[in-house]
Design a protein around this nucleic acid. Structure first.
Length: 462
RNA sequence: GGCGGGAUAGCCAAGAGGCAAGGCGGCGGUCUGCAAAACCGCUAUACGUCGGUUCGAUUCCGACUCCCGCCUCCA
């Protein structure tokens, strides 16, 4: 089975074929760096991380671009509120974003361009749109003329009349058509701005992705991804800007396929800052291992709505315990041929069916636990770890995984635990089970669980 | 009003027109000094409601209910 993905543009699952043989170019919308990433921001990062891992296995060359948007009115608002400089906010937020995403086991993209490094390109793009009659100037703004593009709305399946009918925001008076959107807007002195043919100003929201995707992937690339909420207006407007500025080829130009991940709720309610029921990745990482958070996201198919809960993370953590326990028990044999088994690849090739891939991982785990010969165990251990490679889980050394503890907890150090285990085993040897159990209970009270195995006593944290 | 996604066991969650995967949790057993882990077994009066198509639907169609979202700057 070849790779199939659900394409938002065509509205169905389709067979994937890259524009250039053996090469895949993918662009995913990254964060606007004004605040800590919440778990909803993490979903597309994790989803497309697994997806690009799969692509790299399937194709010799993959270029994955994910941008950082560091110019935006939300950033300006954050500046006003905190008094920090823009640079301080965007750099700090970017740093934390990187740390948080790494903690969730995400590999960095090949390129991570920043919007502010590409203002010149944006100005060029706006010029092109003006020259080709797809844009116009009005009151120091430059606007995209939606009526100039006959098939505007093809991604979101919204037509211009619907847009106008559903408008909840007052239409700016300088717009020729209510559906037109801003390409460039003027900045007052207290706002970030760049010199342009239309005066000092700053770019509209969608411009950066049009410019940076072309710069790193060319005017026609393969896949554009992001959260469902970006379909309209962001991606719709990117299509408008990029295709009307040129770069229209046989596949309609710009991205050939569009992939969007589903929405997230938190604890049964829609995530909302005003309700306070959203989790930042940062705070979650204090309480849970990043890998458990990652798995909680991958347990649900990426296009399904996901109700993200702490109970869900705990369940994910239990599943990881199972994988790592099996790997730990098989610690006496070398994993052989560590690479993703066929069934895992097949599951993921079917529009990234991570839940089904996980089912296979559990099957492999059962087989490993049931294996009787070392030869089988070597093979199955390799399969299990190989499967985890694609999903970005089960890659740690088991000891490290079992050692993890929440931030700020003060528990016994490894050396002390070792000593207590030795004392307990001494007691067991001399049949002083009361003392042995006392030590075990004492450790358990500190969150340390003991397991007496054939190869001695091992421990893990709850 | 327009457009889109969802509703499967205590919980999470795949799936296919023809006996309802998997995991977590729970229960019983084997193993263990006892545990834990592992293993074995059990754990859904049939998949939101009502109709329709069909030999047969939970899977297709229609209506409805509820939930989530988009309709100009939110992943």
């Amino acid at each position: 089975m070849a790779l199939h993905i659900h394409d938002t543009l065509r509205g169905k699952k389709v067979k994937f074929a890259p524009r250039k043989k053996g090469e895949v170019r993918i662009y995913v919308c990254g964060p606007t760096v004004y605040d800590l990433a919440h778990i909803g921001n993490a979903r597309p990062v994790v989803v497309f991380d697994v997806f690009t891992r799969l692509l790299r296995r399937l194709y010799p060359k993959v270029t994955y671009v994910r941008n950082i948007t560091d110019v935006d009115d939300k950033i300006n608002a954050a500046v006003k509120e905190s008094g920090e400089t823009i640079q301080a906010i965007t750099e700090r937020t970017t740093k934390i974003f990187h740390d948080d995403m790494a903690a969730l086991g995400n590999l960095p993209p090949d390129h991570e361009p920043k919007a502010t490094d590409h203002i010149d390109g944006m100005i060029e793009l706006v010029k092109k749109l003006l020259e080709s009659g797809h844009a116009y100037e009005a009151e120091s703004h430059v606007l995209f003329s939606v009526p100039s593009m006959p098939d505007y709305g093809k991604l979101s399946k919204l037509n211009r009349d619907d847009l106008i009918a559903g408008a909840r925001v007052e239409v700016a008076p300088y717009k020729k058509d209510p559906a037109d959107f801003v390409l460039w807007k003027p900045s007052t002195d207290d706002l970030p701005g760049w010199d342009s043919p239309w005066g000092r100003g700053r770019p509209g929201w969608h411009l950066e992705c049009s410019v940076m995707s072309e710069k790193f992937l060319g005017p026609e690339f393969d896949i554009h991804g992001g959260g469902q909420d970006l379909i309209f207006p962001h991606h719709e407007n990117e299509i408008a800007q990029s295709t009307c500025a040129g770069g229209i080829g046989k596949d309609g130009g710009f991205a050939k396929y569009w992939m969007h991940n589903g929405y997230l709720m938190a604890e049964g309610e829609k995530m909302s800052k005003s309700l306070g029921n959203f989790y930042t990745v940062h705070e979650l990482l204090d309480e849970f291992p990043g890998e458990a958070i990652r798995l909680a996201l991958l347990k649900t198919h990426y296009r399904q709505p996901l109700d993200f809960t702490k109970v869900g993370i705990r369940q994910a953590k239990q599943e990881l315990q199972r994988f790592y326990t099996a790997i730990r028990i098989a610690g006496d044999v070398e994993a052989k041929k560590v690479e993703p088994p066929e069934e895992i690849i097949i599951a993921l090739e079917d529009d990234l069916n991570t839940p089904y891939a996980l089912t296979h991982m559990h099957d492999i785990t059962s087989d490993l636990n049931n294996a009787t010969t070392d030869e089988e165990r070597e093979k199955l251990k390799g399969k299990l770890i190989g499967a985890g490679q694609l999903l970005g889980i089960a890659q740690q050394i088991p000891v490290d995984w079992f050692r993890w503890q929440p931030a700020g907890t003060e528990s016994l150090d490894d050396a002390t635990i070792k000593i207590l285990i030795a004392e307990r085993n001494q007691a067991r040897k001399s049949k002083d089970f009361a003392e042995a159990d006392r030590i075990r209970d004492q450790l358990e009270a500190q969150g340390i669980l003991l397991e007496d195995g054939a190869q001695g006593t091992t421990w893990k944290r709850k």
